[in-house]
Design a protein around this nucleic acid. Structure first.
Lengths: 188, 188
DNA sequence: AAGCAAAACTAACGATTGTTAGTTAAACTG
DNA sequence: CAGTTTAACTAACAATCGTTAGTTTTGCTT
């Protein structure tokens, strides 16, 4: 039970699943990408589900931790939203394969792992919603429909992984600045 | 070869694929949802691929048509973006299952259907990009990175189908107004 | 070098997949 | 109502799936 070998498997699997989706990637596909046979994978992992849940929970926990930190900080709502945008960009840059799987294949999780991830997602959204509502009630945010704002910002952040490759030469800090500007102040 | 029966199959399949993804839905699942046996499906369709391609191409063509109309109209860049937002909302309301599949399962298309959809997607994005660039060069849009704007607006519009159910009582025209406001003028 | 644990292998299993062949029932058409 | 097309059915196929059992090889420890 070499732990680093398990991480290798999960990492290889992540890149395959990102491209083709969980159900379209077989254990034999993953094994081949590691230059071993499918049965050998089971010396390191309990099954395909464990690959999926490791992959997803790793990054979901990251989001939860960061969001909890932001929620407890002493910042204005707008400053908090700015921080949320930044941590999304940071996590996306470092875990883009995991995020693809979290977004597209979370529903293939089973049992307690599924419940846990759904709960984390709901809590995350609820934290974000509270920040926006406070921003509206304090007058820092103008629009009246928090759901539209929540949805609009979160959609952009969640699909950032799709554009990260095209990002090319653009520096991460430039991207952060631009995204904060576009999402908060609009384009006109 | 009853054409309306084929449409029924595609429609039922769309709702199943939206929930579980293309590869997780079997022909037997689709047949069961129609209260027939899997083999009977083949009296109306040539195979699973035809279900997928019908489903996706139907809505992809809708987007292409509408975008081409907008591109050829005599409007300012900002007015055109406003129209793009509106047609996305309209199409999402009427084809939410198809859009889910277009977004999540286009890569499971094969052969010419795959090429065609990828081409339509690229053309659509290129049309949008031109509008944004023109808006920037004419001074109507302030930010300097068109890719960030393109990505940000398009991500929001493409994942709108996920939030459409939660939309609940919100009127479509109210949603259009709010989304235009948030995406163009920001939230501060 | 011997012993041992880790990690690879071969082979096979039961289940499920998309699809085809051949047949029966249903429903139009004349 | 006879004849014919349409659309359902049963049965089965080859392929692939995740996984297990048992075996051999690898590589570290003493």
């Amino acid at each position: 039970m070499n732990a680093t070998r398990k991480k290798e498997i999960v990492k290889i699997a992540a890149s395959l699943i990102k491209e083709k989706g969980y159900n379209a990637v077989s254990m034999r596909d993953i094994a081949q990408a590691m230059n071993i046979k499918a049965a050998s994978l089971y010396n390191h992992i309990s099954g395909k589900q464990e690959i999926l849940s490791s992959l997803i929970i790793e990054v979901a926990e990251k989001f939860t931790e960061e969001m909890n930190t932001i929620a407890s900080e002493n910042l204005s709502p707008l400053q908090k939203i700015e921080r949320v945008i930044e941590i999304h960009i940071d996590i996306t840059v470092n875990y883009s394969e995991n995020i693809a799987t979290l977004n597209n294949d979370w529903m293939h999780l089973e049992g307690s792992a599924l419940k846990r991830v759904v709960k984390m997602r709901e809590d995350y959204e609820e934290n974000f919603r509270k920040i926006i509502k406070k921003g509206i009630s304090e007058g820092e945010i103008k629009s009246k429909h928090p759901e539209v704002i929540l949805f609009s910002i979160l959609s952009t952040l969640r699909t950032l992984y799709l554009w990260n490759e095209k990002r090319g030469k653009m520096d991460v800090n430039v991207l952060k600045k631009d995204m904060v500007a576009v999402l908060l102040k609009g384009i006109v």
